[in-house]
């Protein structure tokens, strides 16, 4: 939670609690959304990626999804159609033609971006999603009721749902290998990447690194770190030689994805001030009308 918002909540909480007589921390009960300065991230250099799809192999292995043999992933025909992360492939690599050099297509790994202001965390009806201190956006499957609002909310269209399961279908997405990263490990995809196109490190250091790379090779990169500011910043960031729109990374403003809906939500609902005021207003109208008319308000008739 950033500083300005925390301040706002504090102030609003005091006022709100005073008027509504409700403890702020009870009202603001929501999922965890920590923005630690030391949160980790990954810098994806699409100019280095060779599309070997070893990350797909390692990812499945790390998430108990059958992953076959490593050499199966040499199959290039999968690049004919654009693929999206799914319940059995939390990360996928897509290939795009490079008009400047047809011999060297552009490969782009796709997975959850792990937003700093995640829409899914904001959206989740049961608060199953949370932004962890190390940057990971994870979710608690036991809480999930399968409403799929996270999928509606996600600005990158990442979460997938097990539509074929009748019982205990799960939402599935990249979890930043939280089981590994929470104890100082590194994500499986980063570990296996032969080209080290994926750099795992503290987010602010990655931003610095990306800047230096662009500065040192202005011909190689466009001057844009995708994810540095998009939707309020993401833990995963991309460098590329071509405009990100051409690489199927959607154009987004810098405004946090849940921004408007959350503030409206808070304006309408938080600390119950508007509802209670409305209640009081309607009650007043009703009472005045009753006095004037001398009417009884009783049974449904």
């Amino acid at each position: 939670m950033n500083q300005s918002r925390r301040n706002f909540i504090k102030t609003a909480g005091v006022i709100g609690a005073g008027i509504a007589g409700v403890k702020p921390d009870k009202v603001s009960a929501g999922p965890k959304n920590i923005l630690s300065d030391d949160r980790m991230g990954v810098l994806v250099d699409t100019t280095v990626c060779i599309g070997c799809r070893r990350c797909e192999f390692a990812c499945r292995g790390a998430h108990d999804i059958p992953n076959g043999e490593m050499k199966d992933y040499d199959d290039r025909s999968v690049f004919e159609n654009m693929r999206r992360p799914d319940v059995d492939a939390l990360t996928v690599v897509n290939q795009f033609e490079n008009p400047e050099n047809t011999a060297r297509p552009i490969d782009v790994k796709v997975q959850c971006m792990h937003c700093d202001q995640p829409a899914c965390v904001s959206a989740c009806i049961v608060g199953a999603f949370s932004k962890q201190e190390n940057g990971a956006v994870i979710w608690d499957t036991d809480k999930c009721i399968g409403c799929r609002y996270c999928m509606v909310a996600c600005p990158f269209q990442v979460p997938a749902f097990e539509y074929e399961k009748a019982i205990q279908p799960r939402i599935m997405k990249c979890d930043f290998c939280f089981d590994r990263t929470k104890d100082g490990g590194i994500p499986a995809c980063v570990e296996i990447c032969p080209m080290e196109a994926l750099t795992y490190g503290k987010r602010f250091e990655l931003v610095k690194l990306a800047r230096k790379k662009i500065e040192a090779n202005p011909d190689r990169y466009i001057n844009h770190i995708y994810g540095e500011h998009e939707v309020g910043g993401t833990s995963w960031m991309y460098l590329a030689a071509r405009d990100f729109k051409e690489l199927a990374l959607p154009e987004h403003s810098d405004a946090p994805a849940p921004g408007a809906s959350e503030s409206i939500q808070h304006a309408i609902f938080k600390y119950f001030i508007p509802p209670i005021s409305l209640f009081a207003l309607l009650g007043g109208i009703m009472w005045m009308g009753k006095n004037k008319n001398g009417n009884e308000l009783e049974s449904g008739e």
Partner: peptide, 22 residues
Amino acid sequence: LGRYYYIYHPLYMWNGNSVLFE
């Protein structure tokens, strides 16, 4: 709902930021 049998979850798993929760 994928897990319709958990429809009662929002009653005690709160997310005040969620429009859907509200």
